[in-house]
Amino acid sequence: MKALVVDDQANVRLLLSHILRTRNGCTVSVAANGREALALLVRESFDIVVLDLLMPVLDGVETLTVIRRTPALSQTPVIVLSAVRDERKVRQLLRLGIAAYLTKPLRPLDVAERIQQILDRLGDAPAVADDGPAERALAARADLRPQMIAATEQLFGLMLGIEVGAAGTREPLTSGDDVASAVLRLEREAVDLEFAITAPRAMSERMTAQYLQAGDVVTDADVSATLREFATIIGGRLQTALRQRGDVVSLGEPTVSRLGAEACERAGGIRVTYTSSAHDLRFMTTLRAVPGARLARTVQDADRRIEDPAHVHAATPATAG
């Protein structure tokens, strides 16, 4: 693996290079600012870039913007490592597309571990069956998997202060789970993509309670609003990634529903389970391809379920009462 470290501070470059070389087995090049980095990136191919934010000449956001707009570099994983803790800045980075956001001062062993997780993920082969146009459309976009994982992990850390990580297990979808989905309409294809975050009811309430901070009343509307916001943000990140690939894509209005008997119909797609041992959380994100016509019906169904509470109870006998 070839890594590029971009930081204006010589001691940070030295320490990061040492970690990447000795702990992660990378061959490392360094650059002191964004301009130097871009000059190297157009000459050589790198598997991963570790980027500082505040730098002279060309800062981290400007550099990342150029990287994402350059077709040959747009898919290069970029880890941002910075002492900046500005939420707006982090959101801007998430929209541009980053593999991780790590804070300074450097905790070298943590950095080595996170970088190793990301490098391992790069080598993951997604399990997508190639048995139909929808599956083929999804398989062609299997590289979205690490971006879906990174966006989800970062969002939980950023908005809820909960560290979650993708787990190796695949959980079945269960009747009664809350599911927030956002449709990514692929304009040039007969297939659309659907991103969904699926959470057991108890977890939805717990994470919303944390979001609203202890003591606030948690209602179904709050749970829905949080999940919908999550689906919008992660869906937006996937939309950006798709556009960088050259897809013409628009993000539909997210919907929230509760899984009923159709739970088993939603099997398939790129499915990732997340856990947080500290908070005993377990939830899932999925990205699946759906024929456009069927998807439209699915969205309408979900809308109807939200607007009609009686329908929710009718569809989810497991959670009634």
């Binding site: 204006d8 505040l54 002492a83 900046v84 001062p105 450097l106």
Partner: peptide, 9 residues
């Protein structure tokens, strides 16, 4: 900001 980062390291 730069001093903060290198001192912290």
């Amino acid at each position: 900001h730069a001093v903060k980062g290198s001192a912290g390291n």
